[in-house]
């Protein structure tokens, strides 16, 4: 069972290492982890996707809360959320395939952000399923390189975590 945790932490050096070390030390598996500063420059937000049963999730949450630099841990998996991930995909492309790739990119409302004689780089934003779908379609042309951010998420409506 996958869970999405929104973790507010002090925006200080060493915090990411404390959090990731906690996961490895206690044997919890991270599917993805994305981190960036929030509307308050002193606070960073980590979005951590973990899998495990309720017992594991409860332990993860409690152990995270024990870190002094962790301000708040929320499991937002059960809420209505907006979830996004961004991927950059460098696809092999030449004159014969370029237009077909552009069509796929259009269907997915993705963007071409770089073009070269033998490659194109696609920027795509969406949930995990969408990114996996476009990746699958682009694979036939040859994916040279790919980078993904990991999921970030906000709860819908006026509520904050």
């Amino acid at each position: 069972m996958k869970h999405t945790l929104a973790v507010l932490v002090e925006n200080k050096s060493g915090v990411l290492s404390r959090v990731s070390a906690l996961f490895s030390r206690r044997g919890y598996n991270i599917d993805s982890l994305a981190v960036g500063v929030t509307e308050d420059p002193e606070i960073s937000r980590m979005t951590i996707v973990v899998h495990g049963d309720d017992h594991v999730l409860e332990q993860v949450t409690k152990q995270l809360n024990k870190l002094v630099d962790v301000i708040k841990v929320s499991d937002i998996g059960g809420d209505e959320t907006v979830e996004r991930e961004l991927a950059l995909i460098k696809v092999a492309a030449d004159a014969s395939t370029r237009s077909e790739i552009i069509q796929i990119v259009d269907i997915f409302r993705a963007r071409i952000v770089d073009v070269a004689p033998k490659s194109m780089t696609v920027e795509v934003t969406g949930d995990e399923a969408k990114i996996e779908a476009i990746e699958k379609l682009l694979r036939q042309f040859g994916i040279k390189e790919m980078a993904r951010t990991g999921k970030i998420a906000l709860v819908r409506g006026p509520k904050k975590v």
Binding site: H55, E58, Q59, K62, Q63, N65, K66
Partner: peptide
């Protein structure tokens, strides 16, 4: 005093 010990 440590909530993480509950039901560990």
């Amino acid at each position: 005093v440590d909530p993480a010990e509950i039901s560990k």
